[in-house]
Design a protein around this nucleic acid. Structure first.
Lengths: 131, 131
DNA sequence: ATATATGAGACTTATATTGTCCCATAAAGA
DNA sequence: TCTTTATGGGACAATATAAGTCTCATATAT
């Protein structure tokens, strides 16, 4: 199993393509074809990215999608979070989940450092780095 | 979704418990009860850990499981790999998978550094750190 | 012998992920 | 204004993965 899921990978391709075409909307059909993403799925993924404030759409002929902000202001973490939620080592590290092993769990405390490293790295990388 | 899956978490609990009881086998029944792991599942998980060379078993009454090597020689990475395979950011980073986007994939090369950090961290942590 | 353990594989169930379909809405252009 | 080309969005279907259970076999202490 991959940490970055297939749909998230698709999303990166789509966002990277939009970054290359800043200023002009690109239709889902073209985005999908050029990046080997099933068309109907690409539509859904872009809608999800839209709700996350990463892309926006222009309707009608000559419409399509474009980035909503500068590629330098979109981190890997933002794209990942929009598509699949935050990357976390385990449930105990990042949510209000109350673990039945609380207090005698051997591992969670030993994972928090790695969790921080992952977060830092994903927040640090920007879509502009892909250009 | 968690990077470390539930069964892997269970495995850590079981292995940590065995580390506390070095020298004397502990039965699956006790391991399962004390660590909130379903009994039949615990049996399967321990068998998997056995195949990976992390634990070994003693059959018959007074039998059970014990660590096959020193807790200091068992890394988090080994336990994780035994249970769910290697932790990887995406398919392209750690396998012979031939990606259809090869050559124009925007992201894989930007993830390899983080992959290395994760690998280092998980290899560095040992079961003995849990005691 | 018997009771208590593990070995191993088939099987079922649960859950998550991926992908498709359909109908509605918006806008450009003839 | 009608038609075509777009996206909005929800329901649904298909697939894959993970978790958990069951059954029977084998080993060993007493």
């Amino acid at each position: 199993m991959d940490i970055i899921r297939r749909n998230t990978d698709y999303a990166f391709r789509l966002v990277a393509e939009l970054a290359k075409n800043q200023g002009q909307p690109v239709s889902v059909r073209k985005l999908a074809e050029d990046n080997l993403v099933p068309y109907e799925l690409a539509r859904k993924l872009l809608q999800t990215l839209g709700r996350a404030g990463i892309v926006c759409s222009v309707k009608g002929p000559k419409g399509g999608y474009e980035l909503k902000k500068d590629a330098g202001d979109i981190s890997f973490a933002q794209v990942i979070e929009a598509m699949q939620g935050r990357v976390r080592l385990n449930q105990c590290l990042l949510s209000s989940f109350v673990c039945p092993m609380k207090g005698k769990c051997p591992i969670t405390s030993h994972l928090s450092e790695l969790q921080k490293v992952i977060d830092f790295h994903l927040n640090d990388k920007k879509i502009s780095d892909l250009l």
